[in-house]
């Protein structure tokens, strides 16, 4: 068990209250993505998201075994881990979609599970492996997400148009989501997560099945969003992407946090991928499978 779980040092970041974003309810200027909501948070200066001692078991299998993670406000946080590491379970518990067996989740310093309905307003979520209300058209789905957040009609209309343009779905705004491809579905779900300009954006595998051009567009949206004072948490399998895109990273395996901190701290002078393989283990080296070499016969 590696013991380099570090609490990241307080990185000077523009606090959410200094962001230039639009106030909730205002119509954003056309063509721009909603900026994170501003105004004094529940307790300014608190980390955007902090998880303490999260546990969750499914039957006999412990999926998450005591995860502690502090995600500073204004950070672009990557969550990496092998398949079945507990990333999705952790993110589900952090966003109110799955009740932890033990532990607390603080969003901007406020306990999520104590008052889920109030706290969820400041979270934008893109879960992995779930359906959408796919008998709605793309535009209807984003509108639905916006109205559920309590936004008024002009705001929702403007933001829906902007977001669909930003993720490149304007052409397909009137197509049923059930007829979307996997990548398009991811993109429309991302638009749903962004529509209320949350303080914290939690995205589970946002780049899966998304083509490179769309992925670049999404990355740009997310960077703009962080620059505006928002906090983004993404999980991914792709180390290279996380190393380039994120400023913080946590490595999770078998339900534990193996390392966490700024990307430079965690990778310690090597590539994130090498460091990841070191931490997680499981690389099988040696002769390989001799009979797989077709040239041998």
């Amino acid at each position: 068990m590696l013991d380099d779980v570090t609490t990241p040092p307080p990185v000077p970041q523009p606090g959410p209250e200094t962001g230039p974003g639009a106030a909730p309810g205002a119509v954003p200027t056309s063509g721009s993505v909603p900026q994170p909501a501003t105004g004094p948070g529940p307790s300014a200066g608190a980390p955007a998201l902090s998880l303490h001692g999260l546990w969750r078991r499914f039957g006999d299998k412990v999926a998450v075994a005591g995860v502690d993670l502090v995600i500073p406000a204004g950070s672009f946080y990557g969550l990496v881990g092998p398949n079945g590491a507990g990333k999705t379970t952790t993110l589900s518990m952090a966003t109110g979609l799955l009740r932890p067996d033990a532990g607390t989740v603080l969003v901007g310093g406020v306990d999520l599970w104590a008052d889920p309905v109030r706290v969820k307003r400041s979270l934008g979520v893109l879960p992995d492996g779930v359906r959408l209300f796919d008998r709605l058209t793309g535009a209807q789905l984003v509108t639905y997400a916006g109205l559920l957040q309590g936004l008024d009609r002009p705001t929702v209309e403007g933001r829906t148009r902007d977001l669909l343009a930003a993720v490149g779905l304007t052409q397909d705004a009137d197509t049923l989501v059930v007829d979307y491809s996997a990548g398009m579905t991811k993109k429309v779900a991302l638009a749903c997560a962004l529509v209320h300009a949350p303080r914290v954006l939690v995205l589970d595998e946002p780049f899966e099945a998304v083509d490179p051009v769309s992925a670049a567009n999404i990355r740009e949206i997310l960077h703009q969003y962080v620059d505006g004072g928002g906090t983004v948490v993404v999980s991914s399998h792709v180390m290279d992407l996380v190393q380039r895109m994120c400023d913080h990273v946590a490595v999770i395996a078998q339900g534990h946090v193996l390392a966490a901190g700024t990307v430079d701290e965690v990778r310690a002078g090597r590539s994130l991928e090498e460091r990841f393989v070191d931490l997680v283990g499981g690389r099988i080296s040696g002769e390989g499978i001799a009979w797989l070499r077709t040239s041998s016969d």
């Binding site: 008024d152 009609r153 009137d174 197509t175």
Partner: peptide, 23 residues
């Protein structure tokens, strides 16, 4: 399948209850 416009979402009141009813 395509559907023009917002359908029921444009008809029901722009509140969470209205949105859920529209859906």
């Amino acid at each position: 399948a395509r559907a023009r416009g917002l359908g029921w979402f444009g008809v029901m009141p722009a509140t969470p209850v209205g949105a859920i009813a529209a859906r």
